[in-house]
Design a protein around this nucleic acid. Structure first.
Lengths: 329, 329
DNA sequence: TTGTAAGCGTTATCAG
DNA sequence: CTGATAACGCTTACAA
């Protein structure tokens, strides 16, 4: 790779000093208009742009934000990060992508990435991860947790999963369901735990015992096999709340293939997250919307506040999920 | 945000010079073992790590690779970028996320991002985009195109979409289909054009006229409405090749809802990409696999070669798609 | 094995 | 309005 064009090159070509070049690129700096034009012309010609790395060295700050996750094959998370990247760019930040193989490797990977002086780290971890909080505190990097649950020592933006689960149970009850099963996700995940808790609490409110409680892993295949198990038994549930949409879709597939139950009349199914596929006619899934736009907006707001006032106490923003009523319940 | 710990701090604490600190962090540098240990200890204590930005300034290179896309709501692309991020990290690179709102804004967004001296830019653009190639050439940033189609002036790793379309037609013909329709995607997209071309070529080989050709936009809803249109007509096709999986799933949903056609006996459907959902029982979609691992591997290889030998002539790697036979054809 | 000093490309300060 | 000069935090000759 040939050498990158520097301000020195432009200065020589334009017959000015390096400082002049710098000023030409600084909004509001005092440069004679014609000088600026000449400099910008030369720069355009040679394909120059100020080196953000050198700039950040002297300015003592970058536009970089570490965006880190360990999750894989989670459709919701992929959409989330996509939208988050857009939002960050709107705020003039650039996302430094940190992708761990597994949740447990998150803090290790982030540790390596922190060679780059990022403004902050936005982390979406499924499991409890105190290491990463300690690490960021030690390195004085503001940490924003996104997703399931607040963690002490970091800012957080979290979906009120318990409330979402309650919404789901309410809806099933209103539908007339009384034999309500819970099809959970990976029990190591924070979101699973709060959704499960919300489910149990809500059931208790109605004086109902869960018809069945199954562990799973949030995947479609898992929802399918658990669905088969539930629906081929002698006694079947009349309502199933699933810990996420993929699993719920698996259940719906199972219902179609191994049972004659009519959905939603004989079997109501509710998911969680509201991924775009939930709206597809083959699923037409009633689900609890985990609002991506609200969440990324809240992350951006939190980030801004944190950067403006590093001394602020911990912030924790709860996002309230909403019911999206479709054909499955 | 408090000041980041620097080598100077460590040097003072450890009672050595700044160079010693640098050496302690440089593999194979000549430092007395105990000195190194002491330095590393202090560093660990104070939470120091070398500033990658200052380092890259002197080293004249970064570990950054711009990873840029304009696509939205494309499940395949999301998976692709997720895997690409992992692959890059394995190669010791960090992805700088560049996300344009629309395909046409890609070169503008990348232009802004290039303030950061990245090693290369990996671009996934759906449409022809010569601006971005010129821009990267002017700035001497190696550019690797991924996806549909090679572009002159940049390296490229591309799926042989024409071959994939041929595979699809072959399969439908073998199935006994003779009234074969094509449900295309957005005609501005490169992938659409080559898939369409492959379809027409293959049909010609068999001496068949397309039963119908519809334009679309690659989305499920579009596949659905086009499917409804096709399948509620007096004369219906016996085979449909769709330009991607989401559209194919839409067609399958339409077939279920508005027709009594048995799949695959009376109606065979083939998609393209092989996103994970294609394997879900509700779809069980026969499709053309657009191999993510092969592609990201090829991108990483191309990147390595390009960085090792900047003078090398343009590289263009074709990835051959494979048929994945499931229940829909 | 260690320290000193120069320099990477920028911006900020301060004279002119 | 402009140009010299000093930083920013690091690596790397070179000298000790």
């Amino acid at each position: 790779m040939t050498r990158r064009i520097t301000a020195k090159d432009i200065a020589m070509q334009a017959g000015v000093s390096r400082s002049a070049v710098s000023r030409a690129f600084t909004k509001g700096a005092s440069v004679k208009p014609e000088t600026r034009t000449r400099i910008l012309d030369v720069a355009e010609n040679l394909g120059y742009r100020p080196n953000a790395i050198a700039r950040s060295l002297i300015k003592q700050e970058t536009d970089l934000v570490a965006v880190v996750t360990g999750s894989e094959d989670n459709i919701y998370d992929m959409y989330f990060f996509d939208r988050l990247a857009l939002r960050l760019q709107h705020e003039g930040k650039w996302g430094l992508l940190v992708r761990a193989e597994r949740d447990e490797d998150i803090s290790k990977k982030l540790g390596e990435a922190l060679m780059y002086p990022v403004q902050a780290a936005i982390v979406r971890a499924g499991t409890v991860n105190t290491t990463i909080v300690e690490q960021c505190q030690r390195l004085k990097v503001p940490l924003i947790f996104t997703g399931p649950c607040p963690v002490a020592g970091a800012d957080s933006v979290w979906c009120d999963n318990e409330e979402g689960a309650r919404l789901a149970v309410d809806t099933l009850i209103q539908r007339g369901c009384r034999k309500i099963a819970y099809l959970g996700g990976d029990i190591r995940m924070l979101s699973e735990n709060s959704r499960r808790k919300g489910f149990f609490d809500a059931m208790k409110t109605f004086g109902l015992e869960p018809f069945a409680v199954l562990d799973g892993d949030f995947y479609h295949a898992d929802g399918y096999s658990n669905g088969v198990q539930l629906l081929t038994a002698r006694d079947v549930p009349d309502g199933i709340f699933c810990a996420n949409d993929a699993a719920a879709m698996g259940v719906l597939d199972a219902a179609k293939q191994v049972s004659n139950l009519r959905v939603p009349e004989q079997l109501a199914v509710i998911g969680f997250d509201n991924i775009p596929m939930a709206a597809w006619p083959s699923f037409d899934l009633t689900t609890i919307d985990n609002p991506i736009d609200l969440t990324t907006q809240a992350v951006a707001d939190t980030l801004k506040k944190r950067l403006d006032a590093p001394g602020l106490p911990e912030m924790s923003v709860a996002i309230t999920p909403k019911l999206v009523l479709r054909g499955s319940a």
